[in-house]
Amino acid sequence: MQFEVFRSSLAPNFPDGAVLRVLGDLDMAGAPRLRNAVVSEVGAGTRLVVLDLTGVDHLDSTGLGAVVGALRRLRTHDGELRVVCPEPRVRRVFEVCDLDRVLELHVDVDTALEGMTVQ
C-alpha cells in the first residue's frame, strides 16, 4: 500500500494549525516521510499539528519514534501535537509502550481540538 501524508490547514480558526493525515503503514519505510513533513511544518511556522492516524494500517516502534520526534519538535518550538487514533489495533501499540500516558489519543479531529482556544 502506498504511504502518503496529506496536509490540510486549520485556518481560520487556528491560523498556525494543520492536520497531517497519514495513510499507509507507519514503519521504517514510512516514518522518514512523516518526520520530513513535521520538520517542514514547524519550519513554516505551524505550531499546532493534529496528527491523524485513522488511515494507518500498521504502526511499529519506528513509527512511534517518528510520533515521539514530532512531539519533541513541536514542544521545543512552544507548539502542540494532538494525535487522532481511533483504531484499537494501532492504539494498542501506543499502550504497550506506555506512550498513551504522555500522548492523549483522540477518536477524531474535532475531539482532538476540543478545549483549544479558537484564535
Partner: peptide, 13 residues
Amino acid sequence: ERLDHESGLGLSL
C-alpha cells in the same frame, strides 16, 4: 528525556 529517544523500543515490544 524520554522524548530524546526515538528508537530503542523494538526489542521491548
